[in-house]
Amino acid sequence: MSAILPPAERLWWKHPLDRVEGTWIVIAFAWCMVMFFMMIYWHVYGKQNLSTETYKTTPDRFAAKAQAMVDKYTVRTETDQKIPVVAPPATEDVYMIARLWAWWPILELEKGRTYRLHLTAMDYNHGFSLQPANINIQVVPGYEHVVKVTPNASGTYSVVCNEYCGINHHQMVGRIYVK
């Protein structure tokens, strides 16, 4: 029999397995099961994957909540676009909007306090990448993603869009300050 020609019998699955083939199938299956259960284990015990809540929303409803937070907790504005810097207490929910080509508003959080960070996109899919912490979340229009965050180090963090969203995608950078 040649590897180039089709098998003489079309019912190839009825032929007995060679011992080496069977061994590789068992090894591959065992490795798949190990990887499957490791995903569950690391999610529960590894504390490296974020557990998020996701809700359906509309851009208008989410924008109203974000604007209410900005109106209540703005401490100053920054950049040429006068983006508000918001310093909410840890007991309040924190909102951040992704839209072409900006993150709004800039957040100022306290180290060691836990916040519920609400994210949504107003127009296209965006990626929330918090650097240098290496947190990545896909932000989708029409859905409100809620993540519990507890900053453990002071500093300035960059929020980068890691999902291509158009011609000025490279300029879509926001900030989070941790005091």
Rank of each mutant, 00 (worst) to 15 (best):
W31G: 07
P141M: 07
Y177I: 11
G46V: 04
T79V: 03
Y164L: 12
R61Y: 13
I40N: 04
R19H: 11
I25V: 14
M38P: 02
G127S: 08
S2T: 15
D123T: 01
G112K: 00
Y177C: 05
L130F: 01
W104A: 08
T120F: 02
I40P: 00
P6K: 11
I40W: 00
A3S: 14
P59K: 01
T79S: 12
T74I: 08
G22S: 09
D71L: 02
S51R: 10
M172H: 15
Q48K: 15
V44N: 02
V34T: 08
I27E: 11
M39W: 06
V44A: 09
V139W: 03
Y95L: 06
T77L: 07
L130P: 02
N162S: 07
N162P: 01
D123F: 04
P141H: 03
A28D: 06
I167Q: 15
F36Y: 11
I176F: 00
I106L: 05
N49P: 00
Y157T: 13
P89E: 02
T156S: 13
E144N: 01
I4D: 09
H118L: 04
V85W: 06
Y157H: 09
E92L: 07
T52Q: 12
P84H: 02
L119R: 13
Y177D: 08
S154Q: 07
G46R: 08
K47C: 09
T150G: 01
C32T: 05
A28P: 01
T79M: 06
A28H: 02
T58Q: 12
H170D: 12
G166A: 05
V20Q: 13
G46Y: 09
M122I: 00
A87M: 04
T77E: 04
S2C: 11
T57A: 11
D18Q: 08
A28M: 06
R19K: 12
T57D: 09
F62T: 03
I27F: 08
T120D: 04
V140M: 12
A98L: 00
N168S: 11
A133Q: 13
M33V: 07
W101E: 07
E108M: 11
D93N: 14
S154R: 03
N134A: 12
R113K: 15
